[in-house]
Computed example of a mutant assay.
Amino acid sequence: MKTLEQVLNQFESECIDNRDANRLARFVPEEHLDKIGIELKDEFKGKHVAEEFTRENILEQLKSDVAFGFEKALGQRGISASLMFEVVKMWNWILEEGLEDFDEYPMYGLPLFKATALKYGFDNPIGNDNGDESKYESE
Results as ranks from 00 to 15, higher is better:
Leu110Gln: 07
Gly109His: 01
His48Tyr: 01
Leu40Glu: 04
Arg19Phe: 11
Leu4Lys: 07
Ala115Met: 01
Phe68Thr: 15
Leu99Cys: 01
Trp91Phe: 14
Lys72Trp: 10
Ile126Gln: 04
Gly121Ser: 09
Arg26Asn: 06
Ile126Asp: 08
Asp20Gln: 09
Met84Phe: 11
Phe113Ser: 00
Ala81Leu: 06
Asn124Ile: 02
Ile94Glu: 10
Thr54Gly: 03
Gln6Cys: 07
Phe68Lys: 15
Arg23Trp: 07
Phe102Thr: 12
Pro29Gln: 10
Phe122Cys: 13
His32Arg: 10
Glu30Lys: 06
Asn18Glu: 11
Gln6Ile: 11
Ile94Gln: 10
Ser13Pro: 00
Gly109Val: 02
Ser134Val: 09
Gly69Phe: 05
Thr54Pro: 00
Phe113Arg: 02
Glu104Gln: 12
His48Leu: 00
Trp93Met: 07
Asn92Lys: 05
Ser134Thr: 06
Cys15Lys: 06
Phe113Pro: 00
Asn57Arg: 09
Ile36Phe: 06
Met1Cys: 04
Glu137Lys: 10
Val28Cys: 10
Ala50Gln: 02
Glu86Thr: 13
Ala73Ile: 02
Gly121Val: 09
Asn9Trp: 03
Glu60Ala: 11
Ile94Ser: 09
Asn124His: 04
Glu133Val: 10
Glu139Lys: 10
Ser82Leu: 11
Gly121Glu: 10
Ser138Arg: 13
Gly109Gln: 06
Glu139His: 12
Ala73Tyr: 02
Gly37Ile: 07
Asn9Val: 00
Lys47Gly: 03
Val87Thr: 13
Ser82Asn: 13
Glu5His: 07
Phe102Gly: 11
Phe70His: 08
Gly37Arg: 13
